[in-house]
């Protein structure tokens, strides 16, 4: 399967060219953030304080890595469930974030927010933290060090593999894919979320 090579930060033109189901690779800088870091970033915005990272054009990766072995750049580093970050996603996109990497689907409001803010949601393959580790060349904590695995890290990545799920036109790979490969007579449930 051929891949589209992306370099960060993402431009509007590049985002225009992406559609659900595209296999892509990221090279350049991406930033990590999970639940606790998102909560703090949004609190800073609410208070009108300066953010520790300029998020314009950037890609956020939802990951909490294992501790590195001595001398290693980072430990196992695969994506976490994106749906938990749904409540924080629209404000992050409004701050200029152009791409997000996680796993699993997003709620309808968040899908719409990607379209409205001309951004994309991608998944990396959940449970492949060892493979993804090989694509991370440098890692440094840039904010909220006290959060440990949940601190914000600046990662330098090369050929980091992912798949486009939500594009800037409101498309959704998971919905399309399920319909395409479903042989069951069962109706697709209206609610596509168990939360958590």
């Amino acid at each position: 399967m051929s891949s589209i090579a992306l370099t960060t930060p993402l431009t509007d033109e590049v985002i225009d060219g992406l559609k659900p189901g595209d296999h892509v690779t990221f090279s350049g800088v991406i930033y990590t953030a999970r639940d606790a870091a998102h909560k703090r970033l949004i609190e800073l915005v609410k208070r009108g304080d300066e953010l520790p990272v300029d998020l314009r054009g950037q890609v956020i990766y939802y990951v909490g890595p294992t501790p590195p072995r001595p001398g290693a750049v980072i430990g196992s580093a695969g994506p976490t469930t994106a749906m938990r970050l749904d409540p924080y996603t629209e404000p992050m996109l409004e701050l200029g974030v152009k791409g997000v990497i996680g796993k699993g689907g997003r709620g309808p409001a968040v899908r719409a927010a990607f379209a409205k803010n001309h951004a994309v949601y991608c998944i990396a393959v959940g449970g492949t933290g060892a493979l993804l580790n090989r694509h991370i060349k440098k890692a440094e904590v840039v904010a909220f060090e006290d959060l440990g695995t949940e601190a914000i890290r600046r990662l330098e990545v090369e050929g980091f593999p992912a798949i486009v799920v939500n594009d800037c036109r409101g498309g959704d790979l998971l919905e399309e894919g399920k319909r395409q490969y479903r042989t069951s007579e069962r109706p697709i449930p209206a609610v596509q979320s168990l939360g958590g």
């Binding site: 189901g21 959940g126 395409q180």
Partner: peptide
């Protein structure tokens, strides 16, 4: 169900 690996179908 058609969910598939990582739910991509």
């Amino acid at each position: 169900l058609g969910v598939g690996p990582q739910a991509v179908g």
